[in-house]
């Protein structure tokens, strides 16, 4: 969807950030791509929304995007949640950008907490919003100490944490933000995506960029890069599984959200990725789509 003129605000530089800032962010992004998984500091700017609402992703997107791009914004799998709606409106307003809700149509996808189920292509760039880029933060609170551990690739402390989980609970209890080793060298946070999504980062065809505005760090996972979720030989990494399929499209391959469905205690599981779910339902009911029952 291309924004109409009254949607677009004048007086701003294209995509809000000034060109000087974009150059600085762009240099940081290029370095990040050359050192996969390494957190590169950047001069995070004040954005017109509070830190914690995706200012890092916003600045990465603003520095990368051009007038020919088509932007999709996802918040927890859906294009209709608050964060996605406001960021999409922001770029329509300050860049006059065309936006879409379809994964396949997007050239740039900014996302919070999910990676689309539809496999990405080499023509797409994924931008992830990251609240805490330092995977060691809970274990090594001091940034300087954590950077030293990264310099030595000394990640024993993280393995101890995972081991303690297994010793106490019989499994690793991290459901999201499950740490990964990128290109066999840097421990990185995949951002708070469910661990279900971790395998999608491994050898992805698309470039993934991670922006943390408050923490002033960005990092990258280039395409075709080994991304290993930490595990042990006798406790291999596993993703979440469900005993049911999506109540709407029947998919057994996608990440499901549990939602209430009317009556007391009634619940159902549906795809978290709304575009994927919609596409599957359209494919199975072409007649309904022809009759205008598809999405507006």
């Amino acid at each position: 969807m291309i924004p109409n003129d009254d949607e677009v605000a004048g007086g701003y530089n294209f995509a809000y950030l000034d060109e000087q800032t974009k150059r600085m962010v762009r240099r940081a992004i290029l370095k990040a791509v050359c050192i996969p998984g390494h957190q590169v500091p950047f001069g995070s700017r004040e954005m017109p929304l509070p830190a914690g609402w995706g200012t890092g992703g916003l600045q990465v997107t603003a520095s990368v995007i051009g007038p020919d791009d088509v932007l999709k914004v996802i918040d927890q799998g859906t294009d209709a949640a608050t964060n996605a709606v406001s960021i999409r409106a922001f770029f329509r307003r300050v860049a006059g950008l065309a936006t879409t809700e379809r994964t396949r149509e997007a050239s740039l996808i900014q996302t919070r907490h999910r990676i689309p189920e539809t496999p990405l292509t080499e023509e797409q760039i994924l931008v992830l919003q990251v609240p805490q880029p330092e995977p060691l933060r809970q274990l090594v609170p001091r940034g300087a100490a954590a950077r030293r551990l990264h310099a030595f690739a000394d990640y024993g402390v993280m393995y101890v944490k995972l081991y303690e989980d297994i010793a106490r609970f019989g499994r690793v209890t991290l459901a999201y933000d499950y740490p990964v080793l990128v290109n066999g060298r840097y421990l990185a946070s995949p951002s708070p995506i469910p661990r279900f999504d971790n395998p999608k980062l491994d050898n992805s065809r698309a470039l993934s960029l991670f922006g943390a505005g408050r923490e002033r760090r960005l990092y990258a996972i280039p395409p075709y890069t080994r991304v290993a979720s930490l595990d042990f030989g006798d406790h291999p990494f596993e993703v979440q599984r469900w005993s049911v399929g999506c109540a709407l499209c029947g998919s057994r391959a996608s990440y499901l959200d549990e939602i209430g469905s009317g009556g007391p205690g009634a619940r159902m599981f549906v795809c978290s990725d709304t575009d994927y779910c919609e596409e599957r339902r359209e494919a199975s009911a072409p007649a309904r789509r022809a009759a205008g029952g598809g999405r507006p």
Binding site: N13, L30, V33, I65, G66
Partner: peptide, 28 residues
């Protein structure tokens, strides 16, 4: 602001295109 968004200046547009080419070259 009442005027429609100014399209990116020619230089800014060129910088963005060059950056994307660089990003692609280093990504692949």
């Amino acid at each position: 602001f009442s005027s429609p968004a100014a399209p990116p200046s020619e230089a800014a547009q060129r910088d963005q295109r060059v950056f994307r080419v660089l990003l692609r070259a280093l990504s692949y």
